[in-house]
Each structure stands twice: as C-alpha cells, then as structure tokens.
Amino acid sequence: MSEGRFARWFDARGWPLLLIGAPYLWLVVLFLLPFLIVVGMSVATNTATAPPFSFGGEHPWINWDPFTRVVTDGLYLRAFLTSILNAFVAMIFCLLIGYPMALGLTRVSKSWRNILLMLVILPFWTSFLLRVYAWMGLMGKNSWFNGMLTDAWNFLVPLDWAVKSIPMMHTNFAVVLVMVYTYLPFMILPLYASLERLDPNLDEAAMDLGSRPYRVFLDVTLPQSVPGMVAGGMLVFIPAAGELVIPTLVGNASQPMIGKIIQDEFGQARDWPMASAVAVALLILMVVPTMIYSHYQAKAEGSK
C-alpha cells in the first residue's frame, strides 16, 4: 500500500520535481553561486592572505574602492574603450561583409544554397583557437600573404613610403581582422534566416509599383531585415567585447582589452576584488546590448 502511495506521489510531484530540480540545482550551485561570489568579491578588500581577500578590516564591510578605480583609473577606462571600439568595428565589418553574403545566399539555387550554408557553418565546428592561429601564420612578417600585401602597398605608394613588410601582428587591426574572421558566421546565419523568410512577392510588388531594384532593396528588403541585423550584430559584439584569446595572440600588449585585464588582475596582481569589479563592470556594460537583442528577438517572434 505504501508503495502505491509512493508511486502516486512520484507521478504527481516527484517526477516533475526531479526533472526541474536536477538542472536547476546544478545551475544554482555551479553557475549562480560562483557568479554571486564574484559579485560579492567586487566589494571586498584585497589582502595578503590566502585566499587574498577579506570583508571589513580597515574598511567598512563594503569596499567601493575597486569600482571607484574602474571608473577613474585610465588603465581600465582605456581597456574598456579598446574593447568596445574593437568589438564595434568588428561588428560593422561583419555587417558590411555578412549582409551581401547572406543576401547572396538567398539568391542562389536551392542545391547550391545548402552546400554554401554548410560551408558557412563548417568553421564553427573546427577549433576556434586554430582559426585564430591560421591568421597568425598569414599576418607574420615572412608570410606569403603579408608579402603580397607589401608588394601591393609598395607598388601603389611613393618610393620613400615603401616598407619591408606590413606590421600587422600585434595591432588592433589584427584583433579586428581575426574577430571578423571568427565571428562572421554569427552575423551571416541570423541575417540569412531573416532574409530568407521575406516574401519574394513583396519585392515584386514594389517593382510592380515602380521601384527599381536598388529602391526595392532600400524600401522593402533592408527595413525588414533590421531584426536580423541587430541579432547578428549583438551575437558578434557581445562575445567580441569580452574576448580574451584573440587579443592575447594577435593584439597589442600595450593596449589590452578588458578580458586580459581581468585575467591579469586575478593572476599576476592577485587582486581578486579588483578582477571581480572589472568583471561586474563588463557585465553591466553588456546589459544594454543584451536588452536591445532580446527586444528585437521578441519582436521577431511576435511578428511571425
């Protein structure tokens, strides 16, 4: 009899509880809790103990110093600026290259389209690190690619501007180039999805009402693909701004991006509260683009 009662309880309450509880508990313990610790840490005081922080001490319980430094110290402000600028420029270039590519994908024949889409997705499955690495090979001083660009440059500019090789590695240019390379699929796929959904009859209707193809693009295609553009833009911007691998490998060490600052504060400086404060500041900065993204996402779902 008690078994029957257990079975009934399990069907009605236990089973949903298990289904909800297991992933919930996992995320709370291994994601939310660590995250809250970081948030708490950002108002702690750095000490020479192990672990290197404490609450209270000379300071009141809450220590705002790390945050004060984030908004006043030029090092952090410059790092934030560099991050945002690099991510923004990368986003714009992804849009400029990705839009015509996505539009082109909607215009090729069905069989070609599947092959080309697979070719867009394929790099996703290959190692991110190795894709960055591939550009290190291309951008280096002695590479064929750099040599080609150097020859082109020397051919185009006056003789006294001539260079032996183009200094590409360890610049923000390199960072943006590799970001565009690695994040371009994130731009193409949502754009393609939104362009492919458009009714071709709308283009014809605009043409029928007297618009030339470029006007049709401006009046009909472009406005309707804004949600796709925003989605793609945010999918590029958000990870690019917090990027660590790319700037470490090809970036300028004297102009670090914010990810590198967090890592250095934590590792080399052993200043956990400072690292946490920078991290929290980065997250706050991410809130705005995330809101824009989810706003357009909701709009896109709603109009389906």
Partner: peptide, 18 residues
C-alpha cells in the same frame, strides 16, 4: 540563458574562485 552571453573570462574566473 546567462551562461550563453556571459563572457568566458568571467565564467572561468567565477568557477575558479568557487
């Protein structure tokens, strides 16, 4: 959703501290 948009550096650091 949060882990999807959380920068990897922050996820990494918070796990390590944890």
């Amino acid at each position: 959703v949060a882990p999807l948009i959380m920068p990897e550096v922050i996820t990494g650091i918070s796990m390590l501290i944890f």
